[in-house]
Amino acid sequence: MKVTYRSLNIPFKHPFTISKGTKTHQPSLVVKLELGPYSGYGEAPAIQYYNITVEQMIEDLEKKKIFVEKFAFTDPERYWHYLHHLFPQNPFLVSALDMAGWDLFGQIKQKPLYKLFNADTAKVVLTDYTIGIDTVERMVEKMKEKPWPVYKIKLGTARDISIVEELRKHTDAVFRVDANAGWTTDEAMGKIPVLAKLGVEFIEQPLEKDNWDGMKQLYEKSPVPLIADESCVFEKDVEKCSGYFHGINIKLTKCSGITPARRMIARARELNMKVMMGSMNESTIGSSAIAHFMPQLDFVDVDGPLLLAEDIATGLVYDFGQVKVTGAPGLGIVAEF
């Protein structure tokens, strides 16, 4: 195999603010694996609060590039195990390479990923569209700019309730709330019942990731489902979240790729937990990988290409919440790389 890569820094259409801060661009690493006539693509966005930069991914890849290329590729699961031991401290890089491996494998087998997953494509889930924290006037403007059936509202401020009350005046759409660990237990206890009455479908990561005592209290009293994000990063975290959250949000980049994500879904189902897969503001490359999982999910957040001002691939069609893949082998994308 041959591996090449490209560093991206894609601007957002609007500054993107969550409880942890604001950013105007999304840095990402895109990798390409070439094997015979096939080219497989993968993407890993860099997220500041996980302390893995694009520069770190490139440095680690360069150090062991020869080993990445020498692997005798036959199937992506075997490849993931190899990569997992090759880069034990860099799950983001493993995820990008794992994604590219699955893209290759689908092309070799001449099947799109959802068919390799034996997914029931009759099941349709709608993606939400994310409204980042801003002045309430700007948040209303962003919502009106993008009429959509499901919105994810980023919260974690002193004015959370007034924000949702104002947004609710302008739409009957489903609301989901993501606090990004921005509340204390007492704040969450007060806010969640009010948000439920305002038509919020679920709350994502209300408390700090290690506040298990607080989560237990919320879990026992919340009138809406609570979904783990920052508290559920790797496979081992799924079981830990059982009895504290009603569901998990899997991020491909954080968990180290498609291969472990499939196992996380299976374990969550065994524990009777809801399953969401979320965006980390990927371009169409990374978003396509998420889209192939949609038949297996209860909720999905795959709006990265809608939030970014530019893209480097085609292959996804967005239609008022519905996301359609091309049906071409692998990820089914055409990349400008």
Score class of each variant (00 low, 15 high):
residue 303 D to I: 14
residue 122 A to D: 04
residue 187 E to Q: 15
residue 242 S to Q: 11
residue 162 S to W: 02
residue 219 Y to D: 04
residue 328 A to C: 04
residue 145 E to K: 15
residue 164 V to L: 11
residue 250 I to R: 06
residue 271 L to Y: 06
residue 311 D to P: 03
residue 190 G to I: 09
residue 239 E to Q: 14
residue 66 I to T: 10
residue 55 E to Y: 03
residue 236 K to L: 12
residue 184 T to W: 00
residue 200 V to S: 09
residue 166 E to V: 15
residue 230 E to K: 13
residue 310 E to C: 11
residue 62 E to H: 09
residue 185 T to R: 12
residue 91 P to F: 06
residue 291 A to S: 08
residue 91 P to E: 02
residue 97 L to F: 07
residue 48 Q to F: 08
residue 62 E to Q: 13
residue 220 E to D: 12
residue 113 L to K: 01
residue 232 C to H: 08
residue 195 L to I: 10
residue 65 K to C: 08
residue 134 D to F: 06
residue 216 K to T: 08
residue 295 P to N: 08
residue 71 F to L: 12
residue 187 E to H: 07
residue 152 K to M: 11
residue 251 K to S: 05
residue 63 K to R: 15
residue 256 S to F: 03
residue 47 I to K: 09
residue 161 I to P: 09
residue 95 S to R: 05
residue 226 L to F: 03
residue 80 W to V: 10
residue 5 Y to H: 08
residue 177 V to K: 05
residue 233 V to L: 09
residue 132 G to P: 05
residue 44 A to K: 01
residue 288 S to P: 01
residue 242 S to H: 14
residue 263 R to P: 08
residue 87 F to G: 04
residue 25 H to M: 14
residue 315 G to M: 04
residue 261 A to T: 07
residue 21 G to D: 00
residue 78 R to I: 11
residue 104 L to S: 05
residue 297 L to T: 02
residue 337 F to M: 15
residue 82 Y to K: 13
residue 202 F to T: 12
residue 193 P to D: 04
residue 26 Q to L: 13
residue 176 R to C: 09
residue 103 D to L: 03
residue 144 K to V: 03
residue 329 P to T: 05
residue 106 G to V: 08
residue 54 V to H: 02
residue 245 F to G: 08
residue 323 V to M: 04
residue 4 T to K: 14
residue 309 A to H: 07
residue 133 I to T: 06
residue 10 I to K: 13
residue 229 D to A: 15
residue 200 V to H: 07
residue 40 G to E: 00
residue 99 M to W: 06
residue 285 I to A: 01
residue 128 D to Y: 05
residue 192 I to L: 08
residue 281 N to I: 15
residue 281 N to R: 11
residue 333 I to R: 00
residue 213 D to H: 10
residue 134 D to Q: 11
